[in-house]
Design a protein around this nucleic acid. Structure first.
Length: 455
DNA sequence: CTGGGGAAGGGGCCC
DNA sequence: CGGGCCCCTTCCCCA
């Protein structure tokens, strides 16, 4: 028999203990502000703390202290409140930083919720489009605030439970000129205890995407390996006056018009979702019989793209999402093509150019050198200058190319296996360099086969 | 401190 | 719609 309220009450008690500084054995210092918490709770909630606390001293009588500069005390307050209550107080103003902090702290649930929060606002509803059908572009783009006002009626939350700990201005907030409703997330385990908080429903598309990306984020490595969005940059961009980027303004049409009837993009929950991209028609297509040409407006900045897919891609630079990890070095990329490029350049030494003298080399006139997980080519002369005698096999460098922590996609990292059969390793005597004879023709074939993370 | 080069980020657009 | 290529810009490291 299971008493569903037990978990909720347990968490409540822990939260109460935290507030009263009872049994707190961990101090978290964020930009000078000290937060008290329980090691056990932090350990259970955050991959970062799990790592930190498991690596740290086993001594439990001394309080552990962690210091962070990567996010603000306010952001950590949101995170810590979530840890101890299951309620994530997201607003348009804090979602980026909260997600960044969650990424740093390896809290995949929070990341997912932040992503859902952001993504859920990206859908275009037919209803909303109708609403803007006759908007002039100037009305739409000349003033982000105006636009926010126009949008706000459609996505203001109607069922968000009141949260007394919020400051009044958190009721709705502005982000990039748009008004955002508050967003509360209650883990499934707590939803029963909450007042029938409507669950955040995702469209099939989103569910698929989100589940997939969630699994990717489960593979986050050390926080230092996890790139974070540049909040300041984002804020700068978001704060840019609309006229700052002239290109979209100039190209954007006088009349805003929506795409012809489309499918797939609908509000899942009208209350929590808002139209975040605006389709407008370019100049010269004013005639009603012209095929409507879409332009999609980024809700975070003034960028306008022609295709929804391009907007989706662009948004990753705002959300910081990097779903494509390089399995050789762990570096994560927001897109597949830069990853492929990185992989070819850094780990496959595809450039037939001597890294030292920049001359073109072939398999006859040069060799591949491996340094850690990096590979590059050196011509025989430069190789001789470097002193082949001083170069040895680095078995560490050959073997490490497995990344069990990342179950992303079908990422099959065959680098260390398949390549080895094709290369002849010249062993020498120095640090961590490996010279390899590589058959270029096979290298190309292998390049096709061994692309990381490519489905 | 500065300039050059490599790597990565990001947009446009084709397939 | 995703993958991928091209191009330009930005960032970072190093001499």
């Amino acid at each position: 028999m299971e008493i569903s309220s037990h978990q909720f009450h347990l968490l409540q008690q822990l939260n109460e203990q935290r507030r009263q500084d009872l049994f707190c054995d961990c101090n978290i210092l964020v930009e000078g502000k000290v937060f008290k918490a329980h090691r056990n709770v932090l350990f259970a909630s955050s991959g970062y703390f799990k790592m930190l606390l498991s690596q740290g001293s086993k001594e439990t009588t001394q309080p552990t202290t962690a210091t962070f500069q990567a996010f603000s005390p306010d952001t950590f307050t949101v995170i810590l409140d979530f840890v101890y209550s299951g309620k994530l107080s997201l607003t348009g103003q804090n979602v980026i930083e909260v997600m960044s902090a969650a990424s740093y702290l390896q809290m995949t649930d929070v990341i997912s919720v932040c992503k859902t929060f952001i993504k859920s606002s990206l859908d275009i509803s037919e209803k909303e489009k109708d609403r803007y059908f006759s908007l002039s572009d100037k009305e739409v783009n000349s003033n982000g605030v105006d636009r926010a006002c126009l949008y706000s009626t459609g996505w203001r939350a109607e069922s968000s439970p009141p949260r007394p700990h919020l400051s009044p201005d958190q009721g709705t907030c502005m982000m990039g000129g748009n008004t955002w409703s508050n967003f509360s997330y209650y883990p499934a385990s707590q939803r029963n205890a909450q007042q029938q908080q409507p669950p955040q429903q995702l469209s099939k598309h989103e569910q698929r995407q989100d589940s997939g990306k969630k699994s990717r984020h489960l593979g986050l490595q050390q926080p230092s390996d996890v790139p974070h969005y540049k909040s300041s940059k984002l804020e700068d961009r978001a704060a840019e006056p609309p006229g700052h980027v002239t290109q979209p303004e100039e190209q954007v049409p006088i009349e805003a018009e929506v795409e012809s009837p489309h499918v797939g993009y609908q509000y899942s929950q009208g209350a929590d979702v808002m139209p975040r991209s605006l389709a407008v028609k370019p100049p010269g297509t004013g005639h009603k019989y012209d095929l409507p040409r879409m332009r999609f407006k980024c809700p975070f900045c003034t960028h306008v793209v022609k295709r929804k897919a391009d907007l989706k891609r662009h948004l990753r630079c705002h959300t910081g999402e990097r779903p494509y990890p390089c399995e050789a070095c762990g570096k994560r990329f927001s897109r597949l093509d830069p990853l492929s490029s990185h992989f070819r350049t850094i780990h496959q030494a595809c450039k037939p150019i001597c890294r030292k003298c920049k001359r073109h080399v072939t398999e006859l006139t040069g060799q591949v050198v491996q340094e850690g997980t990096r590979r590059y080519r050196l011509c025989n002369e430069c190789l001789a200058e470097a002193g082949i005698d001083s170069i040895r096999i680095d078995l560490e460098a050959e073997a490490p190319l497995e990344f069990p922590q990342d179950g992303d996609k079908d990422s099959r990292w065959q680098y260390g296996e398949d390549n080895r059969s094709d290369v002849e390793i010249v062993e020498d005597g120095s640090t961590d360099l490996v010279i390899q004879q590589v058959d270029d023709s096979e290298d190309e074939a292998e390049e096709k086969e061994v692309k990381p993370n490519i489905r």
